[in-house]
Structure formats: structure tokens, C-alpha cells
Write a protein that binds this DNA or RNA. Structure first.
Lengths: 157, 157
DNA sequence: GTCACTGCAAAAGGTTTGCAACGGA
DNA sequence: TCCGTTGCAAACCTTTTGCAGTGAC
């Protein structure tokens, strides 16, 4: 038996290649690769769970000669706009960022440890077709996030 | 040919019955039906699109003898916790509330006029099964929102 | 009469902005 | 050198909190 035609594809985002890709994209877009920005990237890739802007700023503030608040916020905004950071929502409604890749991705979030797995391929065609008919909407986009317990946290309980 | 086993069901939330249901539920829960709270409910059912807490407060402040800020925020919190308000996210990342019913619902949001349609039945079983296997997560819950153009706004373009 | 609820005002928390100085390319 | 970027500090916006007084039941 073959796989179903629509498949889900986990999309791993490795810290190092992410940073490299961001730098390359930045350079290509004519942006400057300044020291404060690189520090922000370095801090971001150390997270294993979603982080908030203020949290990132606070963590950077531990360093000697840290980037200013405005720089942190502006960098996040830039990364987010260009798709290198995804904004995710926890089950409790809190927002957070995770390193991502430009394009259409969804996220699977561990409600225990917070770890996030990105995946492509949401297989919603059926649902979308049915809803389009029923509601007369022209559906263009969607937000899908899944919550559960990752392999590790599953064992603990 | 019969309908597919999994169907989507738009869930209409009518202003009047919503207010009645909320009042009944409040009463049943032993909460007091005070004038400020009723005013908040009345303001909520006048919205046709998602609203923010501050917006609700500002609109109420137009009235003579309006509820205080704390009351507005506390009432929203209560409604939200008990499922009578759903928190939705616009495509731009802004949050807003819409009248809802307790239970598992999703929302279809018009990106032009902001109108929201709730629906039950998300037909994600296939996707969830596949992802569970691939990622070894125990998936427990999900957030799904669809964006598009409603029947009216479709015509305009 | 009781106690949940209200309003006020202040604090807290997070984010944005203006502007002069700085420093990559 | 040029102009994008930075840091500071203040402003801004939203939400939360403490507490004394009020009013629904």
C-alpha cells in the first residue's frame, strides 16, 4: 500500500543553517550585518522553545554591552515580516516566536516542555472545499497549530 | 452519493440568544447580574466583527455612566474563560474577541470586512494520525482559523 | 446583612518612537 | 562618505491590581 497522496512533512530548522540562511537573505536584501543584529540571532538560536520579545531582550541584557531594546524589537519585527520567525500562540493565548523558514508552515507544540515542530502539508483541501460551499467564502489562507505531548514528555506521565 | 462522514457545521451565534444564554449561565453559576455587566453584554452583541478589550471599553465610555475599565476587563475575562467569548487572531496577528458558545469551535474570518463565521467539525483525524506517527507526539488539541473573503466581499472585487 | 462586584487610580508590563550619534559597505 | 542602523529615554498603549464603597440577592 502506498502512502496517501497528501502527506505531512516535518520541517526541521537547524540553528546553524538557520542563522546562515538569515544572514545570507539579509545580505541579499541589502541590509547590513551589524554586531547587535548578529547577537540577536545568536541568542535566538539558543532557544529550544518559543520566546517573547521582552524575554529575548532580557536574556541579551545579561551580556556585556547588550543591544538596546529598540534594536531587539526592530530585529524581531524584521525577521518576523520576512518569515524567518514564526509567531505562534500557546494554548493559553500567549504569543511567542520560533525560528522558521519563509513559506507556509504549521506548528506542533508540546504543552509540557514547549518544544515546537514545524510541518508542511496540512491536507485541508477537503475541509476547505466543504466550507467554501457551505459559507460562500473564498478561503485564501489559514492558521493551524496543534498541541500535544512530545515523545519525551509522553513518557513522563 | 451520501455526504462524507465528517462534515463541517457552521454554528450561528445570534446576538439575542447569546445574551440570554450568557445571562442564564451566569445565573446558574451563582454570579450576579449587575447593570454594568449587562451593559457590557449589550455592547458586545452590537459588534459584527472581532473587538478588542480597549475598543469595547472605549465604546462603552461613550455612554452616560459607563462601566469602569476594570469591570470591562474582568467581564471579558470571565466570558472568555467560560467559553462565551472566543479569542481569535487576525492574519496580521492582532487579537480580538467574538461572541461564541462553549465547546470546540473554529472560525472563518473575512479578511476584508472582518465578519466571522464559527464552525464545528474540523475533520483533521487523518492529519492528526499521520503527524502522531511521524513525530511521536500525543496530540491533544488544536487551533484552526481560516481566512478568506465572505460572499459580499467576494463580489466587490 | 452579606459578600460579590464596582470604580478609581496607580502600577505594571510590553512596545513604539524621535533623534542625535555611530559604523558597515 | 553615505545612509542604514543603533541606543537612549520618553511616550504610549494595554492590562492588572489594591482597596474602599456599593448594591444584588
Amino acid at each position: 500500500m502506498v502512502n496517501p497522496p497528501l502527506s505531512t512533512n516535518p520541517v526541521p530548522v537547524s540553528p546553524d543553517s538557520w542563522k546562515q540562511a538569515v544572514c545570507a537573505a539579509w545580505h541579499a536584501a541589502g541590509n547590513r550585518l551589524t554586531e547587535p543584529r548578529v547577537r540577536v540571532l545568536d541568542a535566538i538560536i539558543r532557544y529550544t522553545t518559543p520566546f517573547s520579545a521582552e524575554q529575548l531582550y532580557a536574556d541579551l541584557a545579561q551580556l556585556a554591552d547588550p543591544p538596546g531594546r529598540a534594536t531587539v524589537y526592530r530585529t524581531i519585527e524584521q525577521l518576523s515580516t520576512s518569515g524567518w520567525l514564526a509567531r505562534i500562540h500557546t494554548q493559553l493565548g500567549e504569543a511567542g516566536y520560533v525560528p522558521s523558514l519563509p513559506g507556509h508552515l504549521h506548528h506542533l507544540i508540546c504543552t509540557n516542555c514547549g518544544v515546537v515542530i514545524a510541518f508542511a502539508g496540512c491536507a485541508l483541501d477537503d475541509l476547505l472545499a466543504r466550507l467554501s460551499t457551505q459559507t460562500d467564502f473564498a478561503i485564501e489562507d489559514h492558521l493551524l497549530q496543534l498541541y500535544g505531548r512530545c515523545a519525551n514528555c509522553k513518557k513522563q506521565c
